[in-house]
């Protein structure tokens, strides 16, 4: 497996120059922490929700290039979106990341991460740059790196919905 499948140029770009890096004052912003107990990576997502919209979002914490670039791309993709759009993005992204698990379940037809499958998971959603992270599914131990910030964001949205 070629290293370039994992570390696509756009990923390295987000790693070297992370977008929306920093903190928001909390409160009023919602602050959610995520951990990867396997490697010690930590991500902190700061979330400003106004009505139906994610008005601002900042990322803090530390981690590997995959977790950091995934968080950076997520912040760029989610900022300014409605809650429903953000949730659809989360579903689509996690759908893309779970393709490997389908393969482990013994379904070789689902083996290749094609655009069609992503479209099938969440037909309305355009992942854009995020599709660069598709290569991660070929490196199973790194999937948790890529999904860390997304799970943390989801937790933040869930908390926002119940309070």
């Amino acid at each position: 497996m070629a290293l370039e499948d994992l570390y696509r140029e756009i990923i390295l770009d987000h790693y070297r120059s992370p977008r929306n890096r920093g903190e928001l004052q909390s409160p009023p912003a919602r602050r959610v922490e995520g951990y990867n107990p396997l490697c010690g990576d930590e991500v902190v997502v700061f979330l400003d929700v106004d009505g139906d919209k994610v008005t601002d979002l900042k990322i803090a914490g530390q981690g590997c290039s995959i977790s950091q670039s995934s968080a950076s791309m997520m912040s760029a993709a989610v900022k300014g979106k409605t809650l429903a759009e953000a949730r659809a993005l989360i579903r689509a992204f996690k759908g893309m990341m779970s393709i490997h698990e389908h393969r482990l379940d013994g379904d070789p037809e689902n083996g290749e991460a094609g655009e069609g499958e992503i479209a099938a998971t969440e037909p309305e959603v355009k992942l854009g740059d995020l599709e660069a992270l598709q290569g991660v599914v070929k490196f199973p131990v790194r999937i948790k790196c890529a999904t860390l910030s997304w799970n943390t964001l989801q937790q933040g949205l869930d908390e926002a919905a119940t309070t």
């Binding site: 570390y7 396997l38 490697c39 010690g40 981690g63 590997c64 790194r142």
Partner: peptide
């Protein structure tokens, strides 16, 4: 460079090192 990334690139050269806490 994050240890995960070091370990991943080293693996391409057949060099197995641990990364983590």
């Amino acid at each position: 460079i994050h240890p995960h990334d070091i370990s991943q690139v080293l693996d391409q050269a057949g060099v197995c090192v641990r990364a983590g806490h």
